[in-house]
Design a protein around this nucleic acid. Structure first.
Length: 560
RNA sequence: UGGGGCGUCGCCAAGUUGGUAAGGCACGGGACUUUGACUCCCGCAUGCGUAGGUUCGAGUCCUGCCGCCCCAGCCA
């Protein structure tokens, strides 16, 4: 009914209507291969991809690999995998900034020839001093007036490797008095005697982001270059570079690319900075980049979150320019909604207590048919064994229950889901007073689907046949950070002090129904009345391992 | 005290040329229920940072305040 609307869509619609760039829409996602993708990146990836898709345009994937010191092939591989998994299709347009280092060098030469760039010999420290401050204008470098001939010579020798790292840079000649520090003769190229993960030893000068990015966009014909808010200050420089390219190297320019900024995603109870996520991994607060508690794409995938849920989430949070923090509950809602419609229902008991049905024949086993996905006949059904001994959840029994406790208690009757109604007749405890076994009787007239007892049975609990149960380990997760804003800390502490010590809980003595013997790692289920779980790759034949994706909503408040 | 942004319900977020505040999440209430799940109903901003102004009429225009974010890498 209501169309989704945001300022970027409005811009694109207007451009298409006006025939800007011949009505063409071309976006890109430009990751730097120096870390893993997280859900914040997913927002950017999906935004770029969906705009191209929805307007019949194109979407490129371009690695921004202009800093060999920080970048590695390992990250290229993981990023490729994550973006593919998210479903953003770059078709045959996978690019690397480094693929065009030659053209970029040529562009730089023309900038020098036009008198708009110069080689500067100031040290890094001096450069900083000359740049001025936020409130005071900068001073022009003494090297700013070098002749074009000398600049050309010096730059070519920089490329040949004649100079030490840090000894010289190529700078744009713009305006040292600009209120925007990015315009105070920004560095275009620096010397880095470091091997590049793709170009190897070929180059020892590397372009800076501000020079490389806009030019790459024009080379690829990117019409709408979307990035996050902190690049707003760079837009004047982006436009300057595009203008220079249009004028000085028009044969390579496919269009006048334009940059638009939107607010990056922040999630409550979560951190999104690559640096801090790295610390969580390196300091052992989590077990790796794909730890299910991590907001990384790899972590979410291992947790059991689907790409569809992520896409739906990104769709719902919208796109705007205002800083914001989205409630994690919003994300969890999207995950539940998606899984609710596709995860098959099975039974698993996480903290088992044995139930013996005293009036059930010793060796008899009855196979009950239970539907896989109520409301969806296509999903079929399966046979689940029921016998004299079963396990139920420890929390589904209370010796002295509060009012409206629709579960098992002495003398009370509940239905074992898909099977019979049982009544608790005896509670057996150990010396410590811990309940170790419950004795019940069942009523044959209450067989699921053929209940002729005429009684209305309120409580329904899940169970697993003891004789057929499969042992399993279930890992339950809570928010990695106990507080909404992990960055809010006391004096002298940092975000790690907000780590939730109980974010991981491992239950190793669990039992799951036998149908799960056929489950595959990565497959998702709803453990009835508990939550959604994903089989982990750590699973073995004699011990299945499941990760909690998200629990079911639970509106039951004891005593109320 | 420079420049660039942003401020609409607890959290996100729509709001054409000014015409009388969408939607989602969360929350509360109810119905249904062999998952206390799902689903379905109902409720939830006389007010859009704030103070003025223009106007028949302003979240939308003007002015002044207030608050928050970003920028002084040879990182991206």
């Amino acid at each position: 009914m209501e169309e989704k609307s945001n300022f970027i869509l409005n811009i694109v619609e207007k451009d298409v209507a006006a025939g800007t760039n011949d009505g063409r829409v071309h976006t890109r996602f430009p990751p730097e291969p120096n870390g893993y993708m997280h859900i914040g990146h997913a927002k950017a990836i999906l935004l770029n991809y969906s705009i191209a898709r929805d307007f019949g345009g194109k979407f490129n994937l371009r690695f921004d690999d202009t800093n060999p010191v920080k970048e590695e092939q390992e990250f290229v591989d993981s990023i490729l995998e994550d973006i593919r998994w998210l479903g953003a299709d770059w078709e045959d347009r996978l690019y690397f900034s480094s693929d065009n280092f030659d053209v970029k060098y040529e562009f730089a030469l023309r900038l020098i020839e036009a008198g708009r760039a110069y080689v500067c010999d100031l040290s890094q420290e001096q450069t900083r001093e000359y740049r001025g401050t936020l409130t005071e204008p900068g001073r022009e470098s003494p090297y700013r007036s070098r002749s074009i001939k000398e600049n050309l010579d010096l730059f070519m020798r920089m490329k040949r490797g004649e100079f030490a790292e840090g000894s010289r840079v190529l700078r744009a000649k713009i305006d040292m008095a600009s209120g925007n520090l990015n315009m105070r003769d920004p560095v275009l190229y620096r010397i880095l005697h470091a091997p590049h993960h793709r170009t190897g030893e070929k180059w020892c000068i590397y372009p800076m982001y501000d020079f490389d990015h806009p030019f790459s966009d024009t080379l690829e014909g990117i019409t709408h270059s979307l990035c996050s808010i902190e690049y707003s200050n760079h837009r004047p420089l982006y436009d300057w570079i595009v203008e220079q390219a249009v004028e000085l190297i028009p044969e390579r320019v496919k269009c006048r690319s334009r940059q638009y900024e939107f607010a990056r995603l922040n999630l409550s109870h979560t951190i999104m900075s690559k640096r801090k996520l790295r610390r969580l991994v390196e300091e052992g607060h989590v077990q790796g980049w794909d730890d299910p508690r991590m907001p990384t794409i790899a972590g979410l995938r291992r947790r059991g979150v689907t790409p569809e849920a992520i896409a739906d989430f990104c769709d719902r949070i919208g796109v705007a320019r205002a800083d914001s923090v989205v409630d994690l509950a919003m994300f969890e809602h999207c995950v539940r909604e998606d899984l609710n419609s596709k995860a098959h229902r099975v039974m698993a008991v996480l903290e088992p207590v044995k139930v013996v049905i005293t009036n059930w024949p010793e060796k008899e086993v009855e196979w009950l048919e239970i539907e896989n996905l109520p409301g969806d006949e296509q999903a079929g059904s399966r046979q689940v064994p029921f016998g004299r001994e079963t396990y139920i959840e420890r929390e589904d029994f209370m010796e002295d229950p509060p009012a409206k406790y629709h579960r098992l208690a002495p003398g009370k009757e509940v239905r074992l889901k898909g099977a019979y109604a049982v009544t608790c007749t005896e509670v057996i405890k150990d010396e410590a007073g811990e309940v170790v076994e419950l004795r019940c009787t069942y009523d044959p007239a209450t067989r699921s689907g053929q209940d002729i007892s005429g009684r209305k049975i309120r409580g329904v609990i899940h169970w697993v046949s003891a004789q057929h149960a499969l042992p399993a380990t279930v890992r339950s997760y809570d928010h990695l950070f106990a507080v909404s804003d992990p960055e809010q800390v006391e004096e002298g502490k940092d975000f790690t002090s907000n780590i939730n010590p109980n974010s991981l809980m491992i239950n190793s003595g669990c039992y799951v129904e036998p149908s799960l013997a056929a489950a595959e790692p990565g497959s998702r289920y709803q453990f009835m009345r508990k939550g959604y779980y994903c089989m982990d790759w750590d699973s073995t034949l004699d011990n299945l391992v499941f990760n909690l994706t998200v629990s079911l909503r639970d509106s039951w408040t004891p005593g109320k």
